[in-house]
Design a protein around this nucleic acid. Sequence first.
DNA 1: GCAATTATACGATAAGTTTCGTACTTGTGC
DNA 2: GCACAAGTACGAAACTTATCGTATAATTGC
Lengths: 131, 131
Amino acid sequence: MTKSSFSKPTESELQILQILWQDGPSPVRYVNDLINEKRDTDKKIVGYTTTLKLMQLMLEKGLVERDTTTRTHIYKALVDETTTQQNLVDKFIDTTFRGSAMKLVMQALGNHEASKEELDEIKKLIAKMEE
Amino acid sequence: MTKSSFSKPTESELQILQILWQDGPSPVRYVNDLINEKRDTDKKIVGYTTTLKLMQLMLEKGLVERDTTTRTHIYKALVDETTTQQNLVDKFIDTTFRGSAMKLVMQALGNHEASKEELDEIKKLIAKMEE
DNA sequence: GCAATTATACGATAAGTTTCGTACTTGTGC
DNA sequence: GCACAAGTACGAAACTTATCGTATAATTGC
């Protein structure tokens, strides 16, 4: 997959994908409810038809598919979570860190809490990379 | 700085900021030339007035300032590179990794080449975090 | 059976970003 | 001095994304 052939989901689309990845195939109502529950207090409620429209557009783009055998359509993510994350990370490194993955790692590592287990996991990965 | 009070630069604005951060205060012509030199082959050339307009808008937003004592105005970044990166990383972790900084670190680390020196630097940081 | 509820479809609008044409101004070369 | 090159200002169009109103269809409760 080249950089240019990867179509980046918008922030709203990504938010919906996150829910579908985490909770599995879901109806619009469920997704919309979650979005509103988790929103920052200062942001206003997203209307049901807004989420519906977004998910319909995602269907056209091939980001999701849906089961229409029941009246309440069930939407399912068609793009893979890890692959999408990887694409987004690559692009992010490019635009925000001028291509330096290690600068991103240092920045993310240095500014966020990490448990002993997480640090051990990272150390293990580094050891493997040094072989 | 709270999440909501941080105004995220657009991708075009970030591209311009990167140039100003890297090369220091620069005129519009210089920035526009660099953008076009570095662009992907499939993307078309960005007109001079387009870049000019973007930088004028960035001026209004307070992202840059300019020296107008000479005819050719010199633009300078007003926002700090590291601070901006930190803000963007935080937001990115939220939207793309559901808040897990460590998942981002693992992903970025595991999928990009790293020199021995870079790995050593990361190990040093981890050691410091373990104290 | 039918009123009320809940779902989808879809056009229109709003809002933000990017693009550029055109007018105007300032400096340069000869 | 003046034609030409190079700069800025700015309005407006083109695109993209997000939002919602309204119409319509299916389902449910009683």
